[in-house]
């Protein structure tokens, strides 16, 4: 029983990790309707930046967020403005997909060129200290990740529903042309949203860096799971991504323990494929399409 509870606790902590990575991805998709295949590399870039700030300046990894999040905001905003926006009117999806796939390839290999294949370990600053909560034991850093993910979900929801800018973002997401007719600068909203989504990744990378080794391929490792989470939660839904992350965290932990650690990825992707094919709108998406009406 205690083992089971420990596995569940691990699953929830993993879920927190997946959540904080996925929130930016789902935000960007939900608003701009672009799947950012370079999302994982944004995370990688943020983790390298955290590593550099922590080791060169001797700061606490969490303190680096004041630099990393704005830096990622700029990276995201530039990606939208220079790469995605010129392609928004493209006839085919493949152009947008290749654009971010190309960005991802370039970023991974740029990291390889700059840092080589070595692993960069950000100082843990005591965040790997185990903490006992009742019968289970988790790492201090994991708790912070989980809490930050939950706060980020609440914060973003409040921002999107309670502020004029947030409402404008939702309006653009729901009906771009109508939003323009309200006087909303949709292109600017897109740049802003991509920036916010990327800044969320920046936050995630400062939280994750002390716990996970940074390497050029770390993004690929996380991003595939992030896609799973986002599809599961319903693309574009921030609370959905949180719940989806918890589910995938639990599935990952349970499959890793009871089926075998080398097959847990296969189980996670198997679940993903089943969801994608049977319920492409995600577990919680219930929108009825009325587009057939003449």
């Amino acid at each position: 029983m205690e083992t089971f509870l420990q596995v569940v606790a691990n699953g929830l902590m993993l879920g927190g990790l997946f959540a904080i990575i996925s929130i930016g991805l789902t935000l960007i998709f939900g608003i701009i309707k672009v799947v950012n295949f370079a999302h994982g590399e944004f995370l990688m870039a943020g983790m390298f930046l955290t590593y550099l700030i922590t080791t060169k300046l001797g700061l606490h990894p969490y303190a680096s967020v004041v630099v990393v999040a704005p830096a990622l905001f700029v990276l995201g905003a530039l990606t939208q403005r220079l790469l995605i926006q010129p392609l928004l009117s493209a006839r085919d999806d493949h152009v947008q997909i290749f654009a971010t796939v190309g960005l991802s390839t370039a970023m991974i290999n740029l990291a390889l060129l700059l840092y080589g294949a070595d692993i960069a370990n950000t100082p843990t600053s005591g965040l790997r200290t185990p903490v006992d909560i009742g019968p289970v034991r988790v790492l201090e850093g994991q708790i912070y990740i989980f809490l930050c993910a939950a706060l980020l979900v609440v914060g973003l929801e409040l921002f999107l529903h309670r502020t004029q800018t947030g409402r404008a973002i939702r309006a653009v997401a729901q009906n771009r042309a109508a939003a323009q007719l309200m006087g909303i600068n949709a292109n600017w909203i897109y740049v802003l949203s991509f920036g916010i989504g990327a800044a969320c990744v920046g936050l995630a990378s400062s939280l994750i860096a002390p716990l996970y080794p940074t390497s050029s391929t770390i993004g690929t490792y996380f991003v595939l799971t992030a896609f799973v989470v986002v599809v599961l939660g319903g693309l574009g839904s921030i609370p959905g991504a949180f719940v989806g992350a918890m589910l995938i965290g639990l599935i990952d932990a349970l499959a890793g323990f009871y089926i075998g650690s080398d097959l847990r990825e296969a189980v996670v992707f198997g679940v993903f494929l089943i969801i994608l094919i049977l319920r492409p709108s995600g577990l919680f998406g219930t929108r009825v399409k009325l587009s057939h009406i003449s």
Partner: peptide
Amino acid sequence: EALGLHGFVYGVVLVMAVLFFP
């Protein structure tokens, strides 16, 4: 020395291609 160089070139070429020769 150029670990990752060819991948970087591929990525950049790909981005340029979609932007200028879709």
